[in-house]
């Protein structure tokens, strides 16, 4: 009987649907276009950019940032922020190194280290929900504190001599693609399903959009916040392990300022720090762009100080353009 819905309604439905999906689509296309444009420019300007060695290197670095940026995006969608991800990378890289040096099998060392994610993430959520700390302060505190734990654990020393099987992983490729890039797939696909096709993901958006509306609809705010921070910390713990494999050592200062890279990647990818806006492809493209710029600037022998200035300016321009487009809608 419902097939007899008025025609105007049908038209309105499809138009609204189109408009919405087109907007997200256009944004990721623009970003992809920008990445390709930079790639094209670099391959014309330098000889070394389009070499498989360079591209693999670029993919490896981008992968590490992409994974923490995806985790960061979950938190940002709830309207929060996770400043601790860089410190978690550092801590987990030292913990996995210490465990491996102690002779634990790789699977066990990795398993134990991954435990840092849920523990730290749950602590963040606890501080935010129960102690009433703003996310910025809570994660700022652990950012400092976790770094300290890593340093204490290693007495500030570098831990070298990790098993070959462990360090070889990050240099391997599968089907011509670096294994670290496969790790992105391993994280991003479930993350996409969770965020865009599960009830949990829907609740993340609802809490970020209007937590009062979510609460009045019977959504558990605290469970949603726990989920977001645990996912973010877990992504960071995972990246810590991958980083230890990549640089073959455990150093407590690994991943310094990566929290800022992850926030920048998420925001470049269209996430809003006011919450309720964000996607999984966004931070992936965002970190690819940031990595490309760093890589390209190195190849072009641009002063590394300038690199920082360029990155900063780029963040402002991209987010500003996005604001303009939103306002026009």
């Amino acid at each position: 009987m419902k097939d007899a819905a008025p025609e105007t309604q049908e038209a309105g439905l499809s138009r609204a649907e189109q408009r919405q999906s087109r907007f997200a689509f256009v944004r990721s296309l623009t970003l992809l276009g920008l990445v390709l444009l930079v790639w094209l420019g670099l391959s014309l300007m330098t000889e070394s950019f389009m070499t498989s060695a360079n591209l693999s290197n670029l993919a490896r670095q981008a992968s590490l940032w992409a994974i923490i940026a995806v985790g960061q995006t979950f938190v940002i969608i709830t309207g929060g922020i996770d400043l601790s991800v860089g410190a978690i990378v550092g801590l987990s890289s030292t913990v996995v190194a210490v465990l491996l040096k102690a002779g634990l099998p790789i699977w066990l060392a990795v398993f134990i280290t991954m435990g840092i994610g849920p523990v730290v993430g749950a602590f963040h959520a606890f501080g935010i929900l129960r102690m009433g700390l703003p996310p910025f302060i809570m994660t700022l505190a652990t950012m400092t504190g976790l770094r300290g734990i890593g340093l204490l654990l290693t007495d500030g020393q570098t831990i070298a001599g990790l098993p070959n099987a462990f360090t070889a992983f990050s240099r391997q490729s599968f089907l011509g693609i670096p294994s670290l890039a496969w790790m992105v797939v391993l994280v991003a696909v479930p993350a996409y399903v969770l965020l865009s096709h599960s009830r949990w993901g829907r609740h993340l958006f609802a809490v970020g959009s209007n937590s009062e509306a979510a609460r009045l609809s019977g959504i558990s705010i605290s469970r949603t916040i726990y989920l977001a921070y645990i996912l973010s910390a877990s992504c960071a713990a995972f990246v810590g392990i991958l980083t230890a494999s990549r640089i073959s050592i455990g150093v407590a200062t690994t991943g310094e300022a990566w929290e800022l890279q992850s926030i920048a990647a998420a925001v470049i990818g269209g996430a809003s720090l006011f919450g309720a806006v964000g996607s999984v492809p966004g931070p992936l493209l965002g970190s690819l762009l940031l990595t490309t710029i760093n890589n390209g600037a190195n190849l072009l022998n641009v002063n590394p100080f300038w690199q920082r200035i360029i990155t900063g300016a780029l963040i402002i321009v991209i987010v500003w353009l996005d604001q303009l487009r939103r306002a026009k809608r």
Partner: peptide, 25 residues
């Protein structure tokens, strides 16, 4: 109105009681 502006009309109507199939929305 106490609803989520960022979500669709349908998402708001089912907020907190989303329909699922095989664990997905």
């Amino acid at each position: 109105v106490v609803l989520c502006e960022h979500l669709t009309v349908a998402a708001n109507m089912f907020l907190g009681m989303e329909q699922q199939r095989l664990g997905l929305l």
